[in-house]
């Protein structure tokens, strides 16, 4: 009983402390989008409903109205006129967040698969000054993940470890948080999906303090049927890029 009481007290104390730190610091949420007109509005609203007012949406050359919808939601909307890939969009958003003077930068996908409720535990280690980068991990919460994705992620993790020497439980997760220092120092030329793996290399090379936090992923029909998602073929293309960048 006493142990349980202590546990509850510690949890409440940690939440309160994180809340205080959060109030003192500026958190910017970077959302890269490519043809997400159907959902981007609701994603922005949901993020805002969780108390994050500084949202940077980067439209990666969409053919639909993603950019217009983002602009209408009163966020900082940036537009890459040509589709350059997820990595290029995220990098642009992080650069904008750095210019804004954000203390913490969070990146999340624009298709609604990430739950904004996960942002608080994600940024807590950074707000407390314990970590420079926090990776959201879907594999620490394996029950909800489809089998095919588990296998694909395990392969991705293995390849990332093989090439960049750092083993993480979810090397392809888009939900991540960086301290200002990490957001400034992480620099990769990767434009496409290999960006996520390259960031892990940067974390290792720059000896950044990092941890992984379990996050929920909402496998909605919309998110899982999107053509541009990192499927098997795209995975092979990403692998080809990673190998090429190693030898070129």
């Amino acid at each position: 009983m006493q142990a349980y009481f202590h546990k509850v007290c510690r949890h409440v104390f940690q939440r309160l402390r994180a809340q205080v730190f959060r109030m003192m610091q500026t958190v910017a949420i970077v959302i890269p989008v490519y043809n997400e007109a159907k959902v981007i509005g609701s994603v922005i609203e949901e993020v805002r409903a969780h108390g994050y007012e500084h949202i940077v949406v980067v439209d990666d050359g969409s053919a639909d109205d993603s950019y217009l919808i983002a602009t209408a939601h009163d966020v900082l909307a940036l537009r890459l006129k040509i589709n350059r890939g997820k990595g290029a969009a995220v990098k642009t958003g992080i650069m904008a967040a750095n210019i804004l003077g954000a203390d913490v930068v969070v990146t999340m996908d624009g298709d609604g698969q990430h739950d904004p409720a996960d942002i608080a535990p994600l940024i807590a280690p950074i707000l407390e000054g314990r970590m420079d980068a926090v990776l959201g991990s879907r594999l620490l919460n394996r029950e909800t993940m489809p089998f095919k994705k588990k296998v694909a992620n395990s392969i991705g993790n293995f390849i990332t470890w093989l090439f960049y020497g750092l083993l993480v439980s979810d090397s392809q997760s888009g939900l991540r948080a960086y301290s200002r220092y990490a957001a400034l120092i992480i620099d990769t030329k990767a434009d496409k999906y290999e960006y996520d793996s390259k960031v892990i290399r940067e974390i290792k090379n720059n000896r950044l303090r990092f941890t992984e936090v379990p996050v929920q992923t909402r496998y909605t029909e919309y998110a899982s049927t999107k053509k541009t998602k990192q499927g098997f073929i795209n995975g092979l293309i990403t692998l080809r890029r990673m190998i090429w960048k190693l030898i070129a």
Binding site: L80, R84, A88
Partner: peptide
């Protein structure tokens, strides 16, 4: 191209 596109967007 990516760098140019990024600079233009910003």
């Amino acid at each position: 191209i990516s760098e140019l596109t990024r600079k233009e967007a910003l």
